[in-house]
Write a protein that binds this DNA or RNA. Structure first.
Length: 245
DNA sequence: TGGAATGTTGGAAC
DNA sequence: CGTTCCAACATTCC
């Protein structure tokens, strides 16, 4: 469950642990020593794109779920946890099949919060400017670029391109200003729709292009291919998504 | 049951 | 030395 909106849900689900002492810490992670977290107070729980940041005094741990990672709160799966944290109130959180890393130094210095499509600090003008500086970049690659659209994943990519009627192989430099603006705007707008639909457990039924066979506008078959430098699945309509080149 | 999938990284190759 | 490419990793579902 790794796109940005899902991380927001996780952050909200785990918010009650902030301020509590970590009384148990274990797991099969090899990148940090879980024992270092024991006895520490969880100072903050933040997200940046697809990253979850756990801050305790003198240490920040970054969790990334990649493609297969999952978590559970107040329950366990029948699988070894990469990292498990137990809190003073008796609750616990378990992370599975994820990447665990310690972040060196100041978190605020290392992350550009303006790039996170879910963040209050999201700055669409910054995204547009970055895109204008890379005119040859394909639209399908641009949306997956975490330095520009942190939190956007393959589902959001396909839905944003469909909504904005932009062909995935369009060069961003060929987009008229209004289209570029729409692309950036929808990257955030769709991400918040994703968040609401995911919370309501109705995300998939709202997919218009991703993993779909037919264009809901034209009723013709959608195209499906592995596209771009990112080599990810794209679903698009040749009739209603314009190829800017 | 083999293949595909909401993703990133490290190191090889150029 | 910088940029690009690809194998590797990890898990579940159909």
């Amino acid at each position: 469950m790794p796109e940005g909106p899902s991380l927001v849900i996780l952050r909200e689900q785990a918010a009650r642990f902030v301020g509590q002492e970590i009384v148990r810490a274990e797991g099969n992670t090899w990148t940090i020593d879980p024992a270092r977290l024991r006895g520490q107070r969880l100072l903050a729980l933040r997200t940046w794109g697809k990253h979850l940041l756990l801050q305790v005094p003198g240490m920040t741990v970054r969790i990334h779920f990649l493609l297969f990672g999952t978590w559970r709160i107040d329950e366990r799966r029948d699988k070894p946890a990469r990292l498990s944290l137990g809190f003073a109130d008796g609750g616990d959180i378990h992370f599975y099949a994820c990447s665990v890393k310690e972040i060196d130094g100041d978190v605020d210095a290392g992350y550009d919060w303006a790039a996170d499509v879910m963040a209050d600090a999201w700055d669409p003008a910054r995204a547009r400017k970055t895109l204008r500086m890379a005119p040859a970049m394909l639209a399908c690659d641009a949306l997956l670029d975490q330095d520009i659209f942190a939190g956007v994943g393959n589902i959001i990519k396909n839905e944003v391109l469909f909504r904005t009627r932009i062909h995935p192989l369009s060069a961003v430099g060929a987009l008229p200003p209004a289209k570029l603006r729409a692309l950036v705007h929808e990257a955030r707008a769709y991400s918040f729709d994703f968040l609401a639909w995911k919370k309501a457990n109705v995300l998939k039924q709202h997919w218009l292009a991703h993993a779909q066979a037919t264009c809901p506008r034209c009723r013709i078959p959608l195209h499906k291919a592995i596209l771009g430098r990112t080599k990810r699945r794209s679903f698009w309509c040749e009739r209603c998504q314009k190829h800017y080149a």
